[in-house]
Write a protein that binds this DNA or RNA. Structure first.
Length: 478
RNA sequence: GCCCCCAUCGGCUAGUGGCCUAGGCCCCCGCCCUUUCAAGGCGGUAACACGGGUUCGAAUCCCGUUGGGGGUACCA
């Protein structure tokens, strides 16, 4: 059978970059091997569920282009892909494990358990409290039942030996079984825990490789043992290193882990996000960094995944986004830009941006910078305070503005080349270097000290509008 | 407390015993180009956590220490 992997988020909120990275590695692995990628929603804990989370996760995945072959939305031959629809199966399996003597009912109240745990903490058998009801007499069971206690079902974890896992990223890892404790499979309310549902679904979905964050590494032996109790083999695992925040703490929603949608909204390209994320925890060789999705699919292998955690670097992502943006063919760039502005509800969305593309493509790192950077081409100038101050403080500003107006007015043909010549002439006549003399003109035309090329901008704005702006600045000056 | 994982420049990483006077990219700092800013080009600062082994030889293997992270739930 071919490779089958799954990405199984719980619907507790948006998908942050760490989640996307996990989804990406699963997807790349599946595509690389011509296998199948499954999206499964782990919603066994309804109390933690967030409204709309499933849709939001799907939307994020769609945006980055990770098309899972089987999912709640698409269906598939191994459905359902929503754990809430398999509740009966989980319960039946748990019951049958009890019948087979591999699991048992435990009547301890959460409070009793907490107290016992605290007491056992310092002993050499801290897991003992979980086994308190492992060998209950019939009389004791009857007594608890009479009290109306609702039992949970726990797995009988072996008391001796060790459970070993040959992880594709970590190598061999092993745990002493006696320290594992008897974990809960079925809650008192009859609902399955993650430990039960996750394993049953992986088996049900025919998963061959479990690729997930290494925060789940400690739960692996329990899952292996459960699979064994069911007479099945647990899939091969690959535990990915954590993505850390700038504080070197695990990236979590609690301390501002970015949702992928934030990157979309800020004007990042999905292929840049994918490219960057692929490189946090994986590398192709010592020099290759910029890669298309197809190249990633072709090159991705788990043996090149690093075991050590990495810090998410927004600055490098922005740089990489700029690289991808610059490599776009101008027509495509224009379409993406328009698409982005439409999405954002920008008033510029309806304008013809085509001519502005060459002026901005080399400059901005995210589409989100477009309005600030090139907005002056499409609407009245807004002077940046600092820029205006620089203009105002320049003694020659007034005469330069006048000279520039005159020079543009006298041009037979107004294009980038002729504007270049005319304005350089103005600088020369004033006896100033272009970099100095062009400043007030730039501020008058663009409103900023930072802008696309001045000559190109003037050519694009046209003679009338350019002269109007020069005049306006001149008037405002006096 | 106990269990597990991790450990190369500020960040992402290459490196699987000799090719390493440790390479690439981002950031930072110079210089060049130049109509500002970017982009681009050139150059630079900067790392094998520490201590023991193993070996002719260790960033690479082993042990310990330290540091960081995760787990220890009727969350996932």
């Amino acid at each position: 059978m071919g490779v089958r992997v799954r990405f199984c988020p719980s619907p507790t909120g948006y998908l942050h970059v760490g989640g996307v990275r996990t989804a990406l590695y699963n997807w790349l692995f599946a595509r690389h091997h011509g296998g199948v990628a499954v999206l499964r929603i782990e919603d066994t804990d309804t109390s933690r569920e967030t409204v709309g989370a499933i849709e939001q996760i799907q939307r994020s995945l769609d945006w980055v282009g990770l098309d899972f072959d089987e999912s709640p939305a698409r269906g598939g031959p191994h459905g359902p892909y929503l754990q809430s629809e398999r509740a009966d199966v989980y319960r039946e399996v748990a019951e049958s494990l009890v019948v087979d003597g591999l699991a048992y009912r435990c009547y301890q109240s959460p409070e009793e358990l907490t107290v016992a745990r605290e007491a056992a903490r310092q002993t050499d058998d801290p897991a003992a409290p979980t086994r308190a009801h492992r060998e209950l007499s019939a009389a004791a069971v009857a007594a608890f039942e009479t009290q109306g206690r609702q039992p949970v079902i726990r797995l009988k974890t072996p008391l001796e030996g060790a459970t070993e896992v040959a992880d594709l990223v970590r190598g061999d890892v092993s745990w002493e079984n006696r320290l594992l404790g008897d974990h809960v499979l079925l809650r008192a309310d009859g609902g399955a825990t993650y430990q039960l549902a996750n394993v049953l679904d992986d088996l049900h979905h025919g998963i061959t490789h479990v690729i997930r964050g290494d925060d789940l590494l400690p739960s692996t032996p329990r899952q292996v043992l459960l699979a064994e109790a069911l007479g099945r083999a647990y899939p091969v695992t690959a535990h990915l290193p954590q993505i850390l925040g700038p504080d070197r703490k695990r990236l979590s929603k609690r301390h501002g882990a970015a949702s992928v949608e934030e990157f979309r909204d800020a004007g990042y390209l999905p292929e840049a996000v994918v490219n960057y994320l692929a490189l946090v925890g994986w590398s192709y060789d010592s020099t290759t960094e910029i890669m298309s999705v197809d190249e990633l699919v072709e090159r991705f292998t788990l043996d090149r995944v690093s075991p050590s955690p990495g810090v998410f670097d927004h600055v490098k992502l922005a740089w990489m986004n700029g690289v991808h943006l610059r490599s776009l063919e101008p027509g495509d760039y224009g379409r993406r830009l328009t698409g982005y502005l439409v999405e954002r509800g920008s008033p510029l969305a309806t304008r013809d941006l085509g001519a502005a593309v060459p002026l901005v493509q080399e400059k901005i790192a995210t589409l989100g910078e477009f309005e600030d950077f090139a907005g002056f081409l499409f609407r009245p100038v807004v002077y940046d305070p600092a820029a205006w101050r620089a203009l105002a403080e320049m003694p020659a500003a007034a005469s330069l503005l006048d000279a520039a107006s005159a020079a543009l007015a006298s041009l037979a043909v107004l294009d980038t080349t002729s504007v270049d010549g005319a304005l350089r002439g103005v600088c020369e006549a004033a006896g100033l270097k272009p970099r100095v003399a062009l400043l007030p003109l730039r501020v008058a035309i663009t409103g900023s000290k930072v802008s696309p090329g001045l000559f190109e901008s003037v050519a694009l704005l046209g003679r009338e509008e350019s002269i109007t702006r020069l005049h306006a600045a001149r008037v405002r000056l006096s």
